[in-house]
Design a protein around this nucleic acid. Structure first.
Lengths: 149, 149
DNA sequence: ATATTATTTAGAATAGTTCTTGATAAAAAT
DNA sequence: ATTTTTATCAAGAACTATTCTAAATAATAT
C-alpha cells in the first residue's frame, strides 16, 4: 500500500544518541556529491538550494556531528577555514596556493600514514593528517608559460 | 678600541629588507630556548620577562617575519592557535589530546615527507606538514592505570 | 641634515566558529 | 495516549586568534 504520510528521514543512529535528521541527511548527501572539499559556508550554500530554511549554525552542527560519528572528515590546512571530505580512505591533501583548490593525494604504498612515523613507544594515535601546500600541476604550468614570454 | 655606545642588536638582514631588531632577536631567542612549541601568546609572556614594553601585536609580527625568513616554523594542528618551532629539520608533530603538549616526531628513514606521497606530476611543493593527534605514552599509561583499578 | 623606509604599539576590526536561548520535534516512560 | 525526557534547530550574540590601522619612533639611504 502507498504510504501517503511517509517519514522523510530514516531513523539511523549516529552514535551517542544522535539521529539522522533531514538536515544531517542533506548535509551528508551534499558533501558526498562534492569532490572539492567545501568549507562549512560552501556546504551551507549548496544545502540551501534544497532546504532554504536551514541555518549556517545547523550546517556547522551537522558537519560536526557527522565528523564525530566518523562518516565524514574535517580537513584543516594551516588556519584556513575547515573543509569537509567524504573520502574516508587514508590520504593526504594538496592545497594549491594559486587556485586555492584542495585535492586528495594518495600515500605511497597505500599505507596507513602512521606507519611513516617513528612514534614514541606507547603512544595512542587517533588520527594522522598529511597536508601539502604548493602549486598544482595546472597552475605551475601556467606560471611557467608566463615566465617564458 | 672599546665601543662605549655599542648597538644592542646586530644588523642582520632577514631578507626583503627586514632587519634583526631587538624585539625580533628576543622573540627568536625565546623560541630557540623553548622546546614546547609555544603559541604566540605564550611567546609573548616569555618575552615580556625580558622586554616588558613589547606588545602582543609585535610578537605576532616578529614570529611572522621570522617564519617568512625561514628561520622558524609555524605549526598548526587542526584550527588550534598556531604554535612556533625552531627545529628546521623535517619532522612531524604529535599533539597529545590529554595533556595538550606538542612534541616533535621523526619520520621513518629521516626522509623528506614529500617522498611519502604520490604527488601529481608537475606539482610544486612548498611545504608538507604531518600532524598526529592522540595520547602521548605518559598519558596513555596513566589512563590505563586508572582503568585497572 | 633630510628623506625614505621599516618597525613598534595600542586598539579597532575581522572572520570563522561556538555558544545561548527559546521553540520544536522525536523518543521513551508512564 | 499523555507526559516526560532528550535531541534538534534557528537566530543572533559572543568568543578568540589573528590581522589591520594609524600614529609615533627609529634606522637607513640620500
Amino acid at each position: 500500500m502507498p504510504t501517503h504520510k511517509r517519514k522523510l528521514f530514516n531513523n539511523i543512529d549516529l552514535g551517542g544518541g544522535h539521529r539522522m535528521t533531514p538536515q544531517r541527511q542533506i548535509v551528508y548527501e551534499v558533501l558526498m556529491s562534492s569532490r572539492d572539499h567545501p568549507t562549512a559556508t560552501e556546504v551551507f550554500i549548496r544545502v540551501q538550494e534544497r532546504m532554504p530554511s536551514i541555518s549556517l549554525a545547523t550546517v556547522y552542527n551537522c558537519l560536526d556531528t557527522l565528523a564525530v560519528a566518523g562518516i565524514v572528515k574535517q580537513v584543516n590546512v594551516d588556519r584556513e577555514p575547515s573543509r569537509y571530505c567524504g573520502n574516508l580512505a587514508p590520504h593526504a591533501h594538496f592545497h594549491c596556493e594559486t587556485c586555492a583548490t584542495v585535492m586528495d593525494v594518495d600515500l605511497k604504498g597505500g599505507e596507513e600514514p602512521s606507519k611513516l612515523l617513528k612514534l614514541p613507544r606507547g603512544a595512542k594515535i587517533q588520527k594522522v593528517e598529511v597536508e601539502v601546500r604548493g602549486q598544482c600541476p595546472e597552475c605551475a604550468r601556467k606560471e611557467k608559460q608566463k615566465d617564458n614570454l
